[in-house]
Design a protein around this nucleic acid. Structure first.
Length: 670
RNA sequence: GCCGGGGUGGCUUAGCCUGGUAGAGCGUCGGACUCAUAAUCCGAAGGUCGCGGGUUCAAACCCCGCCCCCGGCACCA
């Protein structure tokens, strides 16, 4: 028996999950945990909703709610999605619980004791009007190096130097430019991440052959670049409070606190189950193996930051971090702002969770980005899940049940080669599932089912039933044993269907009770129940009609209404492009000279990927000419040209506004 | 420009670390069967493995150079 801890990345409670989250993170974790549980190993699988952080406060403001309301709402949504998908945790909690907060403060205390925490007092920009400390990038002022007037607090766009907001001459809040900016002293806690560099390097370099390539490379690169100590507190209201004098108005930074959820969730699981020490079996037993399931954007948090914290607290380090790449939707990334997504709650309102589990397992982005499309979804359900697997099970059980309603018996297996195939598939899948190779496991499963179909065609029980009923019965028992094996093997992928098959086969109890090892045992007797088809055929046209129109009731991201006076402030003119240069210091930027009927303006613009010189030269375009000049990597832009951006396509999506008929240069637009 | 990933039959892809006749599924074409959700099974056509060079008896795989695509960053206000 092994002890397996499974930590699953915490979904952010700021919007529903989409299919990419399920395919890349939650489904593989669930398959893995079901496999190990079935195999008799002791599994603890935890996750929860990540409730803190600035984006949630922004959403709350927009919706006129409190951050807590927003976070709790999406926590509910996530919980429901996971439940409907059949993804089972020992503890699915969230980071806004007293238990989590206590554990975070406890770990912080340990790190402090071990001298991994420092304080640093700095003078930070403070906006007296909004009564908030400001992030550096929300501060503007004059660059001390090049005198550029609109340098940001973190970096000067003109000379490219990184800055501190304090260096700026005449700094002011970007959002309240008329307000005088103050610098107030504020103290923050820092985690000495840099202390762990050598230890981390040693750790990731030793016995990590089982890690996926991309995970190892990513991590090594990060470590090569060096680690900096990072602030773990911020001046904010929403988040975990710090038990320390002077920190009443500060909260713990999410990046530091959310990963601790793996540990706190383990402890609260034990507590809520009435066995307060049960978590220790996973966290204090050296032989326990810790797996973390997540997507590639989360790698550094789980291979560097979290391990550093764990080292600092003397806790168990990860054994494997099988991070996935991204699942794309029609070859483009899922995007919340563009509403380019299939949202899990929407999907589950209309379609079957098991069908989705199958398809997402088949296209899981294990080694590279992979693609989801409705066409592929329908094809895989109809051809593979139903045509191959569902059909084999259904034709076998229904034929046997109809012809032998009182039961079947055979003393020995009528086709040893088929029994051997079962054994081989079983051992292959055991190996590949242990190694987190889920796609491969599913393929082997489907091969076995196909082998069943082939065998049944050769045995042709519909013939032998008329000629040699005894032989027919023996063949059917052999085939039913393949179904029985499939029922067990498919359990991690399709738990609900797995149990249905088990029941149709008239077997006792549950698949979970029988266990993974039960595949090896054949049965000589079956008393079947009348089966129903396991999955429903889908119609592509219907689905496309429902899923593709994607029409919005209202314009998405509609900005607040403005008055006509507001509009009149803009001076938009038509001009002709008379000169084009490449920006000397930026790949994507052009320097355009635009003629407005005599006067010329220099415009810096990022059209390089959309238009070449020839297409632009001589073209009439619309330009806002009274926009305050701005510098882009050292070049002044005296206006902004107007262009449409098509957010529904991935490439070549910018289109210049161009007058329908030729007009005199300098004509105004209203 | 920098960092990472990728480019394999019409489509989706496995293989690449650990060189040795390029596999699968879908689609297409022909056939068989009829227990099964017009399901299944057999057979066929279809690939200069992005381009060029190198190492090797042998390269999809290792090395060098280049091209293209995706993502992140610099940043496109």
């Amino acid at each position: 028996m092994e002890r397996i801890f499974i930590g699953v990345a915490w979904p952010y409670a700021n919007g529903p999950m989409h299919l990419g989250h399920l395919a890349g993170v939650y489904l593989p974790a669930d398959i893995f945990s079901r496999f190990h549980r079935l195999n008799g190993n002791e599994v603890l699988m935890v996750s929860g909703s990540d409730m803190h952080g600035t984006p949630i406060t922004v959403t709350a403001q927009q919706q006129n709610k409190t951050p807590e309301e927003v976070a709790l709402h999406y926590h509910q949504v996530h919980s429901e999605t996971l439940k409907q998908m059949g993804i089972e945790f020992d503890n699915y909690t969230n980071t806004h619980t007293p238990e989590h907060a206590d554990v975070v403060r406890e770990l912080l205390g340990i790190l402090e004791q071990n001298d991994y925490i420092t304080t640093k007092t700095t003078e930070e920009p403070y906006d007296p009007k909004s009564k908030h400390f400001l992030p550096d990038r929300y501060v503007e002022g004059t660059c001390p190096h090049c005198q550029y007037e609109s340098a940001r607090g973190d970096q000067c766009d003109d000379c490219g130097r990184t800055l501190d907001a304090k260096d700026l001459i005449n700094p002011h809040p970007k959002l309240n430019p008329d307000t005088e900016l103050e610098f107030r002293e504020t103290e923050h806690l820092f985690f000495k991440l840099s202390n762990f560099r050598d230890e981390l390097l040693a750790w990731v370099s030793k016995d990590k052959e089982h890690w996926r390539d991309n995970v190892g490379k990513f991590t090594h690169n990060w470590l090569q670049d060096g680690l900096i100590d990072r602030a773990i507190t911020r001046d904010l209201d929403w988040g975990i409070e710090i038990d320390k004098e002077g920190y009443e108005n500060k909260r713990i930074y999410v990046w530091f606190e959310a990963v601790m959820g793996y540990y706190s969730a383990s402890r609260s699981w034990a507590k809520w189950n009435g066995e307060p020490d049960a978590w220790k079996k996973w966290w204090e037993d050296d032989d326990a193996r810790h797996y973390y399931f997540l997507a590639k954007d989360n790698i550094p948090f789980h291979t560097i930051i979290w391990p550093a914290i764990l080292m600092g607290c003397n806790l168990h380090l990860p054994y494997d971090v099988p991070a996935n790449e991204y699942l794309l939707l029609d070859f483009t990334q899922f995007s919340k702002s563009r509403n380019h997504a299939v949202w899990a709650p929407d999907y589950l309102n209309t379609y079957d969770s098991e069908a989705l589990r199958y398809v997402l397992s088949a296209v899981m982005p294990e080694n590279r980005d992979s693609n989801f499309s409705w066409e592929d979804y329908v094809a895989r359900i109809n051809n593979e899940l139903i045509g191959n697997l569902g059909n084999f099970i259904h034709r076998t059980i229904s034929f046997a049940q109809k012809n032998f309603p009182k039961g079947l018996h055979a003393d020995e297996c009528s086709a040893p080669e088929l029994r051997d195939k079962v054994a081989l598939s079983y051992s292959q899948i055991t190996t590949s599932l242990s190694a987190c190779k889920f796609k491969e496991s599913l393929q082997t499963l489907m091969e076995l089912s196909q082998t069943g179909n082939i065998a049944m065609n050769e045995m042709a029980p519909w013939k032998s039933i008329k000629e040699d009923k005894k032989a027919c019965e023996a063949d059917l028992v052999t085939l039913l044993n393949v179904c029985r094996a499939l029922s067990i093997i498919m359990n991690p992928f399709l738990p609900k269907s797995s149990q249905k098959v088990w029941d149709y086969l008239g077997l006792e109890g549950t698949v979970e009770e029988a266990g993974w090892g039960a595949v090896a045992q054949g049965q000589t007797d079956f008393k079947l129940n009348e089966p129903l088809p396991l999955f429903q055929k889908l119609n592509l046209e219907e689905i496309l009609e429902r899923e593709m129109p994607n029409e919005e009731e209202t314009l998405p991201d509609l900005k607040p209404e403005i008055t006509f006076e507001d509009f009149q402030k803009m001076d938009i003119r038509i001009g002709t492009v008379v000169g084009i240069e490449n920006h000397p210091n930026a790949d994507k930027l052009y320097l355009l000279d635009v003629d407005f009927g005599g006067p010329k303006r220099r415009i810096v613009t990022g059209l390089k990927e959309e238009y070449n010189d020839e297409e632009l030269m001589g073209k009439q375009i619309a330009v806002i000419v009274n926009l305050a000049p701005a510098k882009f990597r050292g070049e002044v832009s005296e206006g902004m040209l107007l262009a449409a951006e098509d957010e529904h396509v991935s490439t070549a999506n910018v289109s210049l506004l161009h007058p329908d008929k030729e007009v005199t240069d300098g004509s105004s637009v209203h």
